[in-house]
Design a protein around this nucleic acid. Structure first.
Length: 1167
RNA sequence: GCUCGAGUGGCGGAAUUGGUAGACGCGCUGGAUUCAAAAUCCAGUUCUUUCGGGAGUGUGGGUUCGAUUCCCACCUCGAGUACCA
């Protein structure tokens, strides 16, 4: 009976599906084991042979663990939201859901045909509303949480509100936005609901914020950095500008330290951990505050030289301010007199321009603004709130408001209130000017500071720039704004910058330090400002050299005339007052101590990690469960209304006004009465809120008892990583509609034991998932704060692209250069032996040159306009020839290529086989040419994709599985070579034959034990058990395939047909080649699946040897072997070896200096 | 530039705590079988050689009785990252 793999594989795939063989039970006495593959995106191209590599490995492990008696969870599903389906929708109008569904079908068919032991009853899809319901739910939980640094975990936002109500926000140790103002409890309690919401957004773990993005107006979308080339969009070449957009962000930075610390607890590949460490980018140092010196009186001068107003409209503002000062309201006048006389020890200015506004009263020293609101303000509460928000958030002022009545009737209370507020503001030791905060990892070099550099975007730049420097600075800012971030990064060498004209004061020496701007300082890192120490930092050094800034040396015995000295280990500080003579570490400590003493700095840890932008201007993603209320503040939908389903749209492009695609939805407003809520059109929403009649919702009349809520729904959708950041937990209880997962399920399965996937997810999915897991852990919903104990990155399988080399005859006349329509395919060797890739025909081998000469002259005869042209040749490499045209011997049929428009020229070329030229017109269908291979990434665009379907058809899934493992170590990248699969395929045939030793190849096993004298069979078996078990535990799957081959080769040689050997062997093979194993298992008489048969037990006794073939080495080189009994002593072995004739022959009469004998291992003779 | 990883036959790769380098497979060569082909089986296959042997794991050095394995320096390739103060 032949090994009919197609039949066998179809049979068992059907059996597994019908019997739900791999369905995992949430309630089991067995120990759990969770094996997971990284969530696949079902792409339209389907699988190529590189994709299943990780799935095969994880499947082998999962099957092995089942044999070992574990309850194995091995689920699979689809990360089915994503860009390709949306791009396709934009091009064709086909709904992404339809594309996705079709792709999943192909994907599933391909997975099924490989015989994976997935529990498909647990399948999830991120684009399925019943799944993204829980993605939205987590978003809401994050929104309702803040990070308490004292307890070092996320807590409910309610607890923060309670703190605010009691003591304001000055004492709470929370992670929040940098520009969060200080407030007192009184102020908090006096806040409008909108102001409260605005403040809370600065604390929530997911929040709305203005983020700078690359906006392409022509395409109507935000572009990622790698979609921009030379400042224009990669596609279409449209201009791109830096733009602030309001986006949802995730406060992952709150978890920076824990994400770093957690890496020590998990068994993940070191390179992956390294890139996460690098990405988080922790650096220890100090934050130092520099005071900005007021401009010298000779320059500028006067009250308004400090431009607190927006410079572009300052003229208008000053005009209006004068006007208003002349006509104060009564309340303003009263308060002004009070402020002047009440001795608050503070200078106030009245009707002063700040930013785009004129404020009633301001203390520039304390950054406090006092506003007195007249009647008119009651009608413009919104605008006032906006103004307060801008002044507080963007400009760092504290704003307090009083009504006219309060001032006129209750002046004492108002003054007390002002006093209290002043008290809560940072003192600044009476310093009235601006300060620049910098972060440095080298506080020990503080005496080497000779200038400061701000990022051009730094908000202080416009404020401190002197009128003299204004033009230069503005020109510079404009120039840098035009360059994309990527350009700035790519062009590191060009040194650019501008002097602001302003000076800061050195905290210790009190000397003037000039303030520059330069784009080598990144706005996004640290504070966007640095203290520049040219002697200790190469970038500062280059900048100083370029602009002629002094470079003071503060290192003992170091020459800095050529370059900066950045070595920490050999540092001894000099010329630095109290730091003189100290080494690096001590100097750092001392510097921080001194800075703290004068209140101008403290030790600080800084992270490179940024909060993650969570909004995408896309259609095919999870909608945010968010609407915007009348105040424009975001509100979460109540959990009971989830999922908020993705609306239908007519087109998937941004709207004409530049809104994301969801802006096209006709119904995308939230309307809620009490417990009833619904997505409605804007018109219906407007009608409902203005309608005083009995409301009707969902066709049912509802009472007006509930409050009316709602507003426009969020138009952005969530990014690709949203759906994949908790899917591994959802698999534990995937159909639960009440909770994201039950506590029983999560407490049984706990975490992923083995996670396999590509390394491209190192800083995306794998970092965000860890973040969400820690959040879930903080909230007590999951028992582990790391979701995957062990992770393996499978290597890439590269493709072997096929090329030919071509010599083309050409005709040239001056600048004119035309094809001679004559190409010859030649071997790579010949191509490489050519001295030039272009030249006179005479430089070619005779046969080629005369052939080309003949053809070209023929061509010229028929084309008189080129008859006078010179003949020459060009030699080049072809584009990739689709590997589908190439057979296993690297041959292709010329005439096959003619129909492929991309390759038709090669199809009609001539062929030089090394001896003779075969002219194209003499070729038959069978004429073959040879290609050569080059390893490249396997991809459609390189025409080197090998489809697993064809392999399964020809060799079977078991062969494919074995071969993918056999190629090499799992983690390494390795080239695919289809020719090699015959090796594992014939192994399977040999294995099959081992069980079919009956007449005419009938199935036959003997129940008798292996023949006497051939304990060999047991030895072979147990050797194999031992090795295979070790290999699987070590994820060394390639070596166990070799072991199987050796085992079957040995058993075949022994003509073994004993059940005692062949039955355990079937189980050993089963994780790797499950179909053939099931078939043999059934033939052995079993009625249940082999899947849970217990793994054979290794017994040492079969491996005990009585003798050893000793390698005998001379000076470490093995010269011959000698078989000796195992029980010999060292001395006996030495005697036996020395007595051997070959030993004497090697020594040639010399006496050995030393003889090393390691019993059971080796003998080495020295001398 | 920095970080990490890797260099072994014609090719993929093996060698588990330092102990017979090249397992296993592909390819290639020769043979058997066949009318022939496919398939299958057998033998050989690191290089070199005066057929005794000698050399050999990117290069150079070191530790050791013994190094693909450990240490130092360098070269090459790959991956990630990039003005991070």
């Amino acid at each position: 009976m032949n090994y009919n793999f197609n039949e066998i594989e179809a049979k068992w795939q059907k059996y597994w599906a019908e019997n739900q063989t791999f369905k995992a039970d949430n309630d089991s006495e067995k120990e759990k084991f969770y094996v997971l593959d990284m969530f696949p995106y079902p792409s339209g191209a389907g699988l190529h042979v590189g994709h299943p590599l990780g799935y095969i490995a994880s499947d082998i492990y999962a099957r092995y663990k089942r044999h070992k008696g574990f309850n194995v969870l091995h689920p699979q599903g689809y990360d089915s939201f994503g860009l390709p389906a949306e791009q396709y929708a934009i091009q064709t109008g086909q709904h992404p859901a339809i594309t996705t569904e079709a792709n999943i079908k192909t994907y599933r068919r391909q997975l099924d045909q490989l015989g994976f032991s997935f529990d498909w009853s647990r399948e999830v899809r991120t684009s399925d509303p019943s799944y993204y319901k829980w993605t939205q739910w987590i978003f809401i939980q994050l929104f309702n949480s803040w990070y308490n640094m004292d307890t070092d975990k996320a807590e409910a936002i309610d607890s923060l509100i309670q703190i605010f109500e009691k003591e304001g926000n000055t004492k709470v140790n929370a992670v929040c936005d940098d520009d969060t103002p200080n407030i007192t409890a009184e102020l908090w309690n006096a806040f409008s609901s909108k102001e409260k919401q605005a403040l809370l957004l600065k604390y929530r773990l997911t929040y709305l914020a203005d983020t700078e993005v690359n906006w392409c107006p022509a395409l109507g979308t935000v572009l990622a950095n790698d979609e921009i080339v030379n400042g224009v969009s990669e596609r279409g070449g449209h201009p791109v500008i830096r733009k602030k957009m309001t986006q949802w962000s995730m406060r992952i930075t709150a978890y920076a330290q824990r994400l770093l610390d957690g890496l020590d607890k998990i068994d993940w590949p070191q390179p992956l951990k390294d890139s996460q460490t690098n990405w988080i980018g922790r650096s220890e140092g100090a934050s130092v505050t520099f005071k900005v010196l007021p401009p010298a009186p000779s320059i500028g001068g006067g009250e308004h030289s400090r431009l607190t107003g927006d410079s572009s409209i300052i003229g208008v503002l000053l005009e209006r301010a004068k006007e208003m000062r002349k006509n104060p309201t009564e309340a303003e006048n009263v308060l002004w007199q009070a402020l002047r006389t009440k001795k608050l020890d503070l200078k106030f200015r009245r009707q002063h321009p700040i930013y785009r506004y004129i404020v009633d009263f301001v203390s520039l020293e304390k950054n406090l603004i006092i506003e007195v609101d007249g009647k008119i303000h009651e009608y413009q509460l919104d605008k006032d709130a906006q103004r307060t928000l801008e002044l507080e958030q963007k400009k760092g002022f504290k704003v307090i408001r009083f009504s006219n009545e309060e001032v006129l009737n209750n002046l004492e209370d108002v003054i007390r209130n002002i006093e209290q507020t002043l008290h809560s503001l940072p003192s600044g030791e009476g310093w009235g000017g601006d300060t620049i905060e910098v972060f440095t990892t080298r506080p020990d070099t503080i005496f080497g500071v000779s200038f400061m550099t701000l990022a051009p975007e730094h908000e202080l730049v416009s404020k401190i720039t002197t009128p003299e420097q204004k033009d230069e600075v503005e020109a510079y800012i404009e120039a840098t704004a035009k360059r994309s971030e990527r350009d700035r990064m790519a062009d590191v060498k060009t040194i650019t910058g501008a002097f602001t004209g302003a000076y800061a004061e050195h905290p210790f020496t009190k000397e003037r330090v000039p303030i520059w701007i330069g784009d080598y300082v990144l706005a996004g890192y640290g504070t966007g400002a640095v203290m520049s120490v040219p002697c200790g930092d190469q970038r500062d050094y280059d900048f100083a050299k370029h602009f002629g800034i002094p470079i003071p040396n503060i290192f003992e015995g170091v020459d800095i005339s050529e370059e900066a000295f950045a070595d920490k280990d050999n540092t001894v500080i000099a010329n630095s007052d109290f730091l003189n003579g100290l080494p690096y570490k001590k100097a750092v400590k001392r510097a921080i101590f001194e800075l703290e003493k004068i209140g101008q700095g403290k030790g600080k840890v800084n992270y490179r990690l940024r909060d993650a932008v969570f909004s995408r201007q896309r259609y095919w993603g999870e909608p945010f469960p968010v609407y915007y209320d009348a105040d424009g503040m975001p509100q979460m939908l109540d959990e009971k209304f989830l999922p908020l389903e993705l609306p239908e749209v007519d087109k998937y492009l941004p709207t004409e006004s530049g809104e994301p695609p969801l802006g096209n939805a006709k119904e995308w407003h939230w309307l809620q009465y009490g417990d009833e809520g619904k997505v409605v059109s804007e018109e219906e929403f407007e009608r409902a809120i203005s309608d005083t009649e009995q409301p009707v919702l969902s066709g049912v009349e509802v009472g007006r008892s509930g409050e009316i809520k709602g507003g426009a729904l969020e138009l952005n959708t969530m990014p690709g990583w949203a759906g994949s950041s908790q899917y591994f937990n959802r698999y534990m209880d995937p159909h639960n509609d009440e909770e994201i997962f039950s506590q029983e399920a999560i407490n049984y399965w706990q975490d992923v034991d083995l996670y396999i996937g590509g390394s491209e997810h190192a800083t995306g999915h794998l970092l965000y998932s860890r973040f969400w897991q820690k959040f879930m852990f903080d909230k007590g919903w999951v028992p582990k704060d790391e979701f995957a104990k062990k992770l393996i990155n499978q290597g890439m399988i590269t493709g072997e692209s096929a090329f030919v080399n071509i010599i083309e005859g050409r005709l040239r006349n001056g600048n004119e250069d035309v094809s001679g329509h004559c190409q010859i395919i030649v071997s790579k060797e010949l191509y490489e032996s050519l001295e030039n890739n272009e030249g006179m025909l005479g430089q070619l081998p005779k046969k080629l040159s005369s052939f080309l000469n003949e053809r070209l002259s023929y061509h010229q005869d028929f084309n008189p306009d080129v008859s006078e042209y010179d003949r020459y040749y060009k030699a080049f490499k072809s584009t990739q020839i689709s590997v589908d045209f190439v057979n296993l011997k690297n041959e292709f049929r010329f005439l096959d290529l003619i129909d492929d428009p991309r390759l038709s020229e090669i199809g009609s070329a001539h062929y030089f086989d090394g001896d003779n030229i075969i002219p194209n017109e003499k070729m038959t269908k069978e004429t073959l040419g040879k290609v050569y291979r080059e390893v490249e990434k396997m991809s459609k665009s390189k025409y080197n994709v090998v489809n697993p379907d064809a392999i399964c058809e020809e060799y079977g899934a078991d062969s494919l599985r074995l071969y993918e493992m056999f190629l090499g170590p799992l983690e390494q990248s390795k080239p695919w070579n289809t020719a090699g699969i015959t090796g594992v395929h014939s192994f399977l045939k040999k294995l099959w034959r081992l069980y079919h030793s009956g007449p005419n190849g009938e199935f036959y096993v003997s129940d008798a034990p292996p023949k006497e004298g051939s304990g060999e069979a047991f030895k072979t078996l147990h050797k194999t058990i031992k090795k295979v078990e070790e290999d699987i535990e070590n994820f060394s799957f390639n070596t166990s395939v070799s072991t199987f081959m050796i085992c079957v080769n040995e058993l075949s040689a022994q003509k073994c047909n004993s059940r005692a050997i062949l039955e355990p062997l079937a189980i050993l093979v089963s994780p790797y080649a499950p179909h053939i194993a099931e078939e043999l298992w059934e033939k052995l008489g079993h009625t249940t699946s082999i899947a849970t048969a217990s793994f054979p037990k290794f017994e040492e006794k079969y491996l005990v040897e009585s003798s050893k073939e000793y390698p005998v080495s001379f000076n470490g080189k093995m010269r011959f072997t000698l078989e000796l009994p195992m029980d010999m002593t060292k001395e006996e072995i030495e005697a036996a070896v020395m007595a051997h004739e070959k030993t004497q022959q090697q020594l040639q009469g010399r006496t050995p200096k030393k003889v090393i004998v390691v019993p059971g291992k080796i003998v080495n003779i020295v001398g």
